[in-house]
Design a protein around this nucleic acid. Structure first.
Lengths: 251, 251
DNA sequence: TTAGTATTAAAACGAACGTTTGAATAACTC
DNA sequence: GAGTTATTCAAACGTTCGTTTTAATACTAA
């Protein structure tokens, strides 16, 4: 089990350092020379083990998203089994989706706040290969949760639910990224903002504080009164759920 | 007035192209050679007119944020004068803050959706000089709106308000950036998502649709029930507003 | 017209980038 | 222990980056 450290300790060391450097400087900003020198491995090691810098970033995420994706699906499965056919409550769905994510921040072995921040920042990276990577990586989970929300809010137009899913992802991404301009301005007023107080590993249970505040906010937004659709092109209830699943199959 | 096109048409052309390229490829991803060649100016023109690439990015934003900042302050001033001492409604504050921003997307002369997307993406850029630039550029306006929210929600702990201001900025930033992973997955299901349908200038009034959906969401989140503060370190009402203003003066 | 300033132009600078090469070393297989 | 594969290493590759330099050109003001 733990005796196969011979199975390239180099790989893990590179992944650890890369995770931290990509978080701190972004994908373009973190050079392979910075990464390999801090990891104390040869420059060529990255290309040997990961093929390229893009491959390195992919594996940095795959290492963590494997757990996140399967956990999110497991939790949703459990909830749906427990509900035995009845729609879930929106709060349950959000708790499952975002709570699972934020648990990463509490557990260093899952990546901790470092990975959480990296994820938040990378989700908004404009680079094409990053966006397509995440799209593929998130597709199944997002589709499942989207359908769960459709069932949980049958009276809300589906397009509206998707919009709000957008907004919720944004809140989350921004919050965990911690690049907020508010930090510099009002940072000291609320001393309890986790991700800026210490630089490194005061992680555990600080994500919990974030979770306690983020989830009520998201739930309030999700259940807010619908806009009035004042002008033209009002959208009505969407066609049966089949559509959504079909679109997913296309790619 | 319009006859001083001799005042370096080059400058404006560079700013226009840079705005678009920074939006499309990010700050690091857009090279000066790409920018100057598309703008059909000499490579050295950027350094001549803006000093450096950083200076170019700063001026790209200053050109637009000058209007945004003053407009946001004007609108807030007008509301407060109209209320004559009474606290504003949260919906008024959000409408003023986010509505003003989204109006940029409807007006090409203010930057349009291109600048809006650029702003959303850059707000999450980890580069140090970018963060400090935005912190300085946003300081006054954010402080004013924060205080307005404090007055509008006197029973809500101030730290909680700041948290939710974070979350709202995140929703907005992510929504206008349009790098959303949801695009690729569910993009076609809701055909009305504005910023991906066409590539360029089908802008006007599409930001209006975004605004119609974003504002109710934000308002719902802002007014959501408070978390219960189950465990330790509960925070209570903050000291008088003086504190916040003092912190601002420091820089 | 002339002197002075502002702008543009072509070329090169040094540094940093991601990647590749080919040999040396370590690890494993039979 | 010989043969094979996996990994590490130093060095260099070719490219691109932002910036600077030096000269030519355009514009302004006396």
């Amino acid at each position: 089990m733990s005796d196969n450290k011979l199975n390239s300790d180099t790989r893990e060391r590179i992944l650890d350092v890369a995770e931290r450097q990509f978080m701190a400087h972004g994908y373009e900003g973190a050079s392979m020379r910075m990464i390999t020198s801090e990891a104390e491995v040869n420059l060529a090691a990255v290309n040997y083990h990961f093929g390229s810098k893009e491959g390195l970033l992919r594996d940095v995420f795959r290492r963590r998203l494997a757990w996140l994706n399967s956990e999110r699906l497991l939790v949703l499965d459990a909830l749906e089994k427990q509900a035995s056919g009845a729609p879930l409550k929106p709060s349950q769905i959000l708790e499952a989706f975002f709570g699972t994510l934020l648990r990463i921040g509490e557990d260093e072995s899952l990546g901790g706040m470092t990975f959480l921040r990296l994820l938040g920042r990378t989700l908004t990276d404009p680079a094409e290969f990053i966006r397509t990577f995440f799209a593929k990586e998130y597709a199944e989970v997002l589709e499942r949760y989207k359908l769960a929300l459709f069932r949980a809010l049958p009276d809300v137009p589906r397009a509206e639910i998707v919009w709000r899913l957008h907004f919720m992802l944004g809140s989350m991404s921004y919050a965990i990224a911690g690049t907020d301009i508010l930090h510099v301005i009002t940072g000291f007023e609320i001393g309890e903002i986790p991700y800026i107080s210490g630089q490194d590993d005061n992680n555990s249970s600080e994500a919990k504080k974030l979770s306690e505040r983020l989830l009520p906010f998201l739930l309030g937004g999700l259940r807010a009164p619908l806009p009035q659709f004042a002008d033209s092109t009002t959208q009505q209830q969407s066609p049966p759920a089949k559509t959504a699943r079909n679109k997913l199959q296309e790619k």
